[in-house]
Amino acid sequence: MDRGSCHRLIRASDLKRQRGWTETLVVALLGAPDALCPNPHGFRAPMRWYRQDRVLDAEAGEVFRRRADRLAPHQSWRRAQPTRTWAPDEVDHLEWLDDPARIALFHAPRRPRLRRRRPTPPPPSAAPAGPRFEVLRLF
Rank of each mutant, 00 (worst) to 15 (best):
V63M: 10
Q75H: 05
P82L: 13
V55H: 01
P82N: 10
P73M: 06
R51V: 07
F43C: 03
V63T: 15
A58Q: 05
R102Y: 00
A45C: 10
V91Q: 01
R84H: 15
G42A: 09
F64L: 08
H107I: 14
D57M: 04
A101K: 08
T85Y: 08
A101D: 14
P73F: 01
Q81R: 06
R102H: 05
P73S: 13
R70L: 15
H74W: 02
G61Y: 04
R66M: 13
V63I: 15
T83H: 07
T85H: 05
P100N: 14
R48L: 11
S76E: 10
A45S: 11
R51K: 05
A72V: 08
H41L: 08
R48S: 10
H107C: 14
V91H: 05
R44D: 12
T85K: 06
L105I: 15
R102E: 07
P100L: 13
D98N: 10
Q52P: 02
A87K: 14
W77S: 12
W49K: 05
R84Q: 09
Q75T: 06
R67G: 03
Q75G: 01
A104M: 13
A104K: 07
Q52T: 03
H74T: 09
L56P: 03
R70P: 09
Q81C: 13
Q52C: 04
H41E: 14
Q75M: 05
T83V: 14
R54M: 06
R51W: 00
L94M: 12
P88V: 03
L94A: 13
H74M: 13
E62R: 04
A101Y: 06
G61R: 02
W77G: 09
Q52M: 05
D92N: 05
F64G: 03
A80S: 11
R44K: 06
R78I: 09
G61T: 09
D98F: 00
R79C: 10
G42E: 12
R84A: 08
D69W: 02
R70S: 11
H41W: 09
Y50T: 02
L94Q: 04
Y50M: 07
R66G: 08
R78N: 11
E90I: 06
S76N: 07
D99E: 13
P88I: 02
P100Q: 11
L94P: 02
Q75E: 06
A68F: 01
F64S: 02
T85V: 15
H41N: 11
V63R: 03
E95Y: 03
R65C: 11
R79E: 11
R66D: 05
A87L: 14
D57E: 13
V63K: 03
